[in-house]
Amino acid sequence: MSYLDFLAAHSDRLISGTLITLAQFVLAALVAVAAALISGLMKLAPLKPVRGVATVYIEIFRGTSLLVQLYWIFFALPLFGISLDKFTAGFVTVGLCYGAYGGELVRGAVVSVPKGQWEAALALNMSPLRRMWRIILPQALVGMLPPWGNLMVEILKGTALVALISVTDLMFETRQINNNTFLSAQAFGSALIIYYVFARFMVTPLMRWLERVMARKIGRA
């Protein structure tokens, strides 16, 4: 059986798995961006308890393994009355995990915006929220896009773990094919290629494009 025959025979599983992975990635990325923004800004809050909550979140999700977090949120949280279906538990956990890394990126980028920008915005009598949203965050964004590009690839790779709580993503489908056919090299080889193409030819170029657009917006390109 040639590799092409293999692909033809299992394309439906590979395609549906890829689509689920795509959905998991996009949703996890959105969760990660939101969690990073919220926790990064909370870490800069004047109130200590607010900073504390963000620190605990970042510490827990950065300091433990994504797989354990997945099992926790999918198997243990229901014991506390919070049940998520596996699809939701998957992207939420991956998003929260990488959002904790992103939170540090947001905090660092906001802090590195020159003090004079805050002062100029205050001199225009802008409220604290407007200063952050209109003046500081857009500039911080430019500085943190390159590391976010790496983080996005990590998020994509991280979604492969959701197969372990039986989300039918690319990894899950690949294992099914392997279990049914024992064609391990073809099955896992296909997964490798699809993940690589996804990261290298979709996620990374998209982030680079975003970097260029933002650089142009700020007049640096």
Binding site: G116, E119, A120, A123, Q139
Partner: peptide, 16 residues
């Protein structure tokens, strides 16, 4: 504060 405006040594224009 709305009564006061300020110009800085290093301009501090919004670059974006």
């Amino acid at each position: 504060r709305s009564k006061i405006g300020m110009c800085f040594q290093h301009f501090n224009l919004f670059p974006h």
